[in-house]
Simulated scan of single mutants.
Amino acid sequence: MIAGALTIALGCVSLALVLTLYRLFKGPSAADRILALDTLVINVIALIVLLGILEETMVYFEAALLLAMVGFVGTVAYAKFLLRGDIVE
């Protein structure tokens, strides 16, 4: 039962990943692309967590946590660069 639910969830997250990649490449403005990149990181984190549940190992959860931290810092840096044109003042 859980394996079937995980398979469906992996399919849905993979579809969301593909749609987010489309928005990343097709986005009309830089702000849309930054938002798509942040959403892409969230989708990849969800994919990693689902794979960790499926394979019953803790390594995937640590990787998801590290990716979440790097993704947050990257999104803040991109947004700051977009607003000010400079990351470090």
Rank of each mutant, 00 (worst) to 15 (best):
V44F: 14
L82V: 03
G71H: 01
M69L: 15
G85V: 09
A16V: 10
A9E: 03
A5H: 07
Y60L: 00
K80C: 02
S29N: 15
L65R: 02
S14Y: 05
R84N: 10
I45V: 15
L83F: 09
S14Q: 08
L67A: 15
A68D: 10
C12Y: 13
L15E: 10
D86H: 13
A9C: 03
S14M: 12
K26E: 11
T57P: 00
M1W: 08
A5E: 11
I45R: 02
L6E: 05
E56Q: 12
G4P: 00
N43Y: 14
G74T: 05
D32I: 06
L21M: 08
E56K: 07
N43V: 13
A46G: 15
G71M: 05
T39A: 15
A64M: 02
V76E: 06
L67C: 11
F81D: 01
I53H: 02
A3H: 13
G27F: 08
L47P: 03
G71I: 04
A31L: 10
I34D: 11
M58W: 06
E62G: 07
L24G: 00
L83E: 13
I42Q: 10
I34P: 06
L50R: 03
E56W: 00
I8V: 15
G4H: 11
E56T: 05
L47S: 15
G71D: 02
G74K: 02
V59W: 03
V88F: 13
A3V: 13
L67P: 03
L21V: 06
L83K: 13
I87A: 11
Y78M: 09
G71Q: 04
E55P: 03
L50F: 12
L19H: 04
E56I: 11
V18K: 00
F25K: 00
A5M: 14
L40F: 15
M58I: 09
A79S: 01
